[in-house]
Simulated assay, not measured.
Amino acid sequence: MISSKQRAYLRSLANTITPIFQLGKNGIEEAFLRQLEEALEAREIIKITVLENSGYTAKEAINEICESIGCEGVQAIGNKIVIYKASQKNPRIVLP
């Protein structure tokens, strides 16, 4: 669990990154979750666009993703979500 100060720091980092995944009509399935885990291991923080045809709101998507892969939901605004998980092999982000 991250504190509000750490969450604010992660939100500031997420401002400059572009979404690298789109959650579409296939929804949240195993292959998508596996790709997210690999990306989180490499980048630690990622932004995802939730498309309208996915059947999820941003808050529903972030809750299900975080529950499935054990990451932290940083932000869900509009149709964009930001998730964070510290890398096991090569942590780069140092939380305050």
Rank of each mutant, 00 (worst) to 15 (best):
S4H: 14
V74K: 07
C66T: 01
I81D: 08
I17Q: 09
S87P: 09
M1R: 12
A86H: 14
C66V: 00
E72A: 10
Q88H: 12
N63V: 01
V74Q: 09
M1V: 11
I77N: 15
R43P: 07
E52F: 10
A76W: 06
V94Y: 10
R92M: 11
K5P: 05
I81Y: 12
E67I: 09
A31P: 05
C66F: 00
L13C: 00
I65A: 00
I93C: 00
G70P: 01
S68G: 02
K47I: 08
A58H: 04
I62C: 03
I28P: 04
I81T: 02
G70M: 02
F21W: 08
R11S: 06
G70N: 03
I83V: 15
G73R: 12
T18L: 13
G73C: 11
C66N: 02
Q88C: 15
N90E: 14
P96K: 02
V82P: 12
I81V: 15
M1I: 09
S12I: 00
N53C: 09
Q6I: 00
T49P: 09
E29V: 10
A86P: 03
R43T: 12
Q75S: 14
K85A: 09
Q88T: 14
E38G: 14
P19W: 09
F32D: 07
A14C: 01
A39P: 03
L33V: 06
I48S: 06
E41P: 07
N79S: 15
I83H: 04
E41M: 02
R7F: 07
A86F: 08
G55C: 00
L23Q: 04
S3C: 03
R92N: 11
A42C: 12
R34H: 13
Y56D: 02
Q88E: 13
A39D: 07
A42V: 11
S68N: 11
G55V: 00
L23P: 06
P19G: 06
P96W: 01
I77D: 11
E44M: 08
A42T: 09
Y9N: 02
N79L: 11
F32S: 04
L36D: 05
V74M: 06
E64P: 00
I77G: 10
E60V: 02
I45C: 03
A86Q: 13
E44H: 04
S54W: 06
E67H: 10
L10Y: 04
S68I: 06
K80R: 14
P91M: 05
A31N: 13
T16Q: 12
E52R: 11
I83S: 06
A42N: 15
Q22V: 06
Q35A: 14
S68L: 05
S68D: 07
P19H: 13
I69H: 03
G27T: 00
I62S: 01
I48P: 03
K80S: 13
I28V: 06
F32Q: 08
G78S: 10
I46N: 07
E72L: 09
N63F: 06
E67D: 10
A76Q: 09
A61D: 00
S68H: 02
M1L: 10
T18V: 13
T49H: 13
I69C: 01
T16V: 15
N53T: 07
S87Q: 04
V94L: 07
E29P: 04
E41G: 08
V74I: 11
S68E: 09
S3A: 04
E38T: 15
E72M: 10
K85Y: 05
S68M: 11
I83A: 03
I62P: 01
Y9I: 00
E64T: 00
S3M: 02
A42P: 13
L33E: 04
